[in-house]
Design a protein around this nucleic acid. Structure first.
Lengths: 190, 190, 190, 190
DNA sequence: AATGAATGAGATTTCATTCAT
DNA sequence: TATGAATGAAATCTCATTCAT
């Protein structure tokens, strides 16, 4: 018997991301995704239970990738501010480098589909960030507020800044990222 | 598509928002929207040219409503910080009060459909906000950065904070909103 | 608005019966039925909720027709034997005249679909037959056995005899039917 | 398709019968049958040419089994009535013991597939029964009618009586079967 | 012999829209 | 204006079967 073809798996995910980004969730049909991926629509059902499974799995996989990218080179010995700065810069770079994946995840996250993803999954991928914020609070460096709220001020802006559709002007000059981080930091620091 | 039966018009918009929120754009079919609104599918085409027109019009209408709500009681004589604080609070209250409309607009905005809406429309609704930021820069009260970037730090967080799915803990206590505004202000103030 | 087209309704039922008889339940697809009926597959779903509804409704309708035909000219004053003879002859004629409908119902009845039909429906259509058998028992003309068992001996044979595939030789000669009824009567009479 | 793995062969037949009985011919797909049997869909094609072959072979095999069961302990020296009584009782017991196989064969026999089975095959399995009826006619013990018609009156009822779905009340008491045979015998005896 | 992967063809059903009233 | 009927096109998914191992 044959083995599952890793190449096909990747082609399907890429096609899904591309089509959803270009045409939206509503118009991204299984047939079109399959054609884009160069496989038969039936083949898609060898890899995924159904369309929902395809979309949710793709989302989770993307979130995992970003989780890895953002927490890359995590150094627990750094000062709080530097740790957060690294996460911030990592996030900015990752989003810039994988615009398509990011756009997909942003679109997906606003969809009712998103409720199907268990929250533990997300928690796992971004744990170090939350830990760092908690540590900052304990050390009285960061304002004593719920983690979700601090996260919103710290990381929501970077997601917009890295999106050239929204902030075309941003990120071209060296120093832009450090400057923007300062704003985020100013928001949450004590 | 004007002045036919206002009551039916509203029923259709409400049904559209409800269905898109609950089932997503892909599953919100004309037939289901019509059933939810208590009219025939054909009736829908009396009010809107086609499905795209229905969705885009609904979005623009929602944005208009939020524009009005956010810039309500605009007082040009107030200090910069107080003007922004009012926008902020208005936004928070408006989102809280019209969760469904807000959710729809968030979902819609990430859709390729959103590109069909001319940017001037948005500019018109939220003009006073941009003016205020520009004025703050001139007065050297706010950091001298592109308006889009300041907007991101100032208003992106409130959109998340007002969403109980993301920040369940927020907004229950009096003072929450003022406190949160302080964070946003700290980010952009000089 | 338009009205539902009785002609189309009938065309769909006829097409269903024809295709199921000729190709079996498995091969009788909605598309083929629609084509045979001269309507769009989508139109079929205006009249029936889904394929199962189409098949079950068709079956119930056929049973109703046969119920009417078998109990036609029911005369409560006749002797038991004559009443049963009339049911018997009616059944034979009805089956002969509507071979296709009968074949469909026979095939359907052996299908798991048949369990979806509530038994009261059948009871209603064939009530007079059961009443007559009960009366015969009371009058000590018929063997005192459960109605189902008597029914089996009385009416199962006629269903086979009227089927030319099984009994090609039967029913050509006048007197065949009366003769065959005698066998059924001999089985259940005291 | 002979003598590979008898165990697998049996598993496939059992799965076929089970699925056809529970979900009908239309829904009994090769994939589901294979899963139920615990083999790969491809394996099925080692044993049978195609799906049709699987179904027809299963039917013929079941008919063979019932033929053997019904004519078991055939004693040519017995009187006509006793020979038929034995066939009758054998049939009743066989159907009762192999409800699933019987249900499958009943369902299959009404299907257009059934026309693919050459009639000689059936004749071979049930030959002794037909011989006995012919003998009875010759001895002027049984009514002089075509064999098919006598068969219908003699054996159609037992097929229904042994089906608990139709005759739930029947067969529980000792003597039920003998009593019922009397009815069948009364129908055809001179 | 046995199998999981792969697929073209086709299944059922729903879609957005128009028609006739 | 308002609508239920009607439909071609397209949706998702499963089918029986073959392939490569």
């Amino acid at each position: 018997m044959r083995h599952k073809d890793e190449h096909k798996q990747k082609a399907i995910i890429d096609a899904t991301v591309k089509l959803v980004n270009e045409t939206g969730f509503a118009a991204a049909s299984v047939a079109k995704i399959a054609r884009e991926a160069g496989v038969s629509p039936a083949t898609l059902y060898v890899y995924y239970k159904n369309k929902e499974d395809l979309l949710v799995s793709t989302y989770v996989e993307i979130k995992r990738k970003f989780g890895v990218a953002v927490t890359r080179e995590y150094d627990p010995t750094l000062p709080i501010r530097d740790k957060l700065a690294r996460f911030w810069r990592n996030a900015f770079v990752a989003i810039q480098e994988e615009q398509a994946l990011f756009q997909f995840s942003e679109q997906f996250a606003r969809t009712p589909y998103a409720d199907l993803v268990p929250p533990e999954v997300m928690e796992e991928y971004f744990g170090p960030i939350f830990d760092t914020l908690r540590e900052g609070i304990r050390q009285k460096i960061i304002k004593d507020l719920p983690i979700e709220i601090l996260s919103v001020f710290m990381f929501q802006p970077v997601m917009q800044l890295a999106n050239p559709k929204i902030c075309a002007a941003f990120g071209k000059e060296p120093g832009d990222v450090d400057l923007a981080f300062t704003l985020a930091w100013d928001a949450i620091k004590l």
